[in-house]
Computed example of a mutant assay.
Amino acid sequence: MKTSWGYTAWLAVSGFACVAITIFAASAYVTLDMSQSRPPLHGAVHYGLLVAHIFTGTVAVLAGVSQFWPGLRARHPRVHRVTGRVYFAAVLPSSVLGVVCAQLSLAGLASSAPLTVLSVLWFVSAVYGLKTARRRQFGEHRIWMIRGFALTGAAITGRLWGLALGAVMPDGDGLLIFATANWLSLVVNLLVAEWWIQSRGYTRTLPSVALRPSISSKSAQSSASVA
């Protein structure tokens, strides 16, 4: 499929925004100063888990952005594979740490529920993305990577939703705004990903089950050959 200039420009702008927002969000944790933590903490262990989650999540964003750059897979397949491995090596632990940090949240279920769902789906998408790549099922791999990066980017769009909701409801409850922003980032990102998959026709390029010989047809062919 030919890549248009508009598509390339959109990828460049959105990729730059993802990287910039991610680095800004992670900058508060570079000094390892617990007083700079944005969510309230149980203690040092909670902070350590949060920092590990943020660090691996940042790596996942930086590695994931490169996976969608046009021509990288075709012109530099080795770079594509290496950054893909880095992406999976970051997502798998970060998603598990995300579940743990969500359960430790001091804000209660309203805060932990969307983060837990997001982290679990993020882990599942990475597992299927890795599995399809190892099986060389590249059509399925592309679809799972799109879904997975949509979930990776939920940490970024969640902040944008939070700013938008805060501007609309300046006197609104902070916890409600935070929970709503996280749910919106999760659901909207997945809906956009599925729209993108369907609009680009990626599902139409998958091997059809109807084209694969069934057990009965194989048996019939075996019987015919014996006869």
Results as ranks from 00 to 15, higher is better:
Phe68Ile: 15
Leu104Arg: 09
Ser112Ala: 15
Ala44Cys: 05
Tyr87His: 06
Gly98Met: 07
Gln103Ile: 01
Ile54Trp: 00
Val45Trp: 12
Ala74Trp: 12
Ser94Met: 14
Ser105Glu: 03
Ala44Ile: 05
Val86Asp: 00
His80Ala: 07
Ala74Cys: 11
Leu104Ala: 11
Val82Gly: 07
Val51Phe: 05
Gly108Phe: 04
Gly108Trp: 04
Pro77Cys: 05
Gly71Pro: 15
Val45Gly: 12
Leu106Asp: 05
His46Gln: 14
Val65Met: 01
Phe68Thr: 14
Leu92Thr: 15
Tyr47Asp: 02
Leu72Val: 15
Leu41Thr: 00
Gln67Lys: 08
Pro70Ser: 01
Ala107Ile: 01
Gly84Ser: 09
Gly108Asn: 10
Ala74Glu: 14
Arg85Trp: 09
Arg78Met: 05
Ala60Phe: 04
His42Val: 00
Ala52Cys: 15
Val79Gly: 03
Ser105Ala: 10
Ala107Gly: 10
Ser37Asp: 03
Gln103Ala: 13
Leu92Trp: 01
Val96Met: 08
Arg78Asp: 00
Val61Ala: 00
Gly71His: 12
Ser111Asn: 12
His46Ser: 14
Ala90His: 03
Pro40Tyr: 01
Ala44Glu: 07
His80Cys: 09
Ser105Leu: 05
Arg73Met: 09
Phe68Val: 15
His53Ile: 12
Ser105Val: 00
Val79Ser: 10
Val86Pro: 00
Gln103Arg: 15
Leu50Met: 12
Ala44Lys: 12
Val45Lys: 12
Tyr87Asp: 12
Gly71Val: 13
Gly98Trp: 04
His42Asp: 11
Leu104His: 08
Phe68Trp: 08
Val65Arg: 05
Thr58Gln: 09
Phe55Gln: 09
Gln67Asn: 11
Gln67Ala: 08
Gly84Ala: 08
